[in-house]
């Protein structure tokens, strides 16, 4: 694994759909680099032979039966929709 201690804040912000000012970008640059350096320390540890942790809680197989539960009504589901039509959530046209 390559380990850059610098981080592209602009790229990370774009992935998270965040719009940062130049000042914010500079500030987060410093903070995030600190975090990355901290992770680098952990990466230096020898973890050979240690089973990867899937979850902080040591439990597994917490599942449910395949039994139906009531759904919301269409009215309830759409209650917060800014725009709706014919029972659908209407959103700006998606262009792929």
């Amino acid at each position: 694994m390559s380990a850059p201690s610098s981080i592209d804040v602009g790229y990370v912000a774009q992935l998270a759909r965040l719009k940062l000012s130049e000042e914010e970008t500079r500030r987060f640059q410093g903070q995030l680099e600190q975090i990355v350096r901290y992770i680098e320390q952990i990466r230096r540890l020898d973890v050979a032979g240690i089973e990867p942790t899937a979850h902080a809680v040591d439990r597994s197989n917490v599942t449910r039966d395949d039994a139906a539960a009531p759904s919301l009504s269409s009215e309830e589901a759409l209650a917060n929709a800014p725009v709706r039509a014919n029972g659908l959530f209407m959103v700006p046209k998606v262009i792929e």
Partner: peptide, 19 residues
């Protein structure tokens, strides 16, 4: 627990989890 069913009226098989 919403029903896995094709062809129901739109947005009638939803809950906070799948929304």
């Amino acid at each position: 627990g919403c029903e896995n069913e094709f062809g129901a009226a739109p947005n009638t098989r939803t809950c906070p989890v799948c929304l």
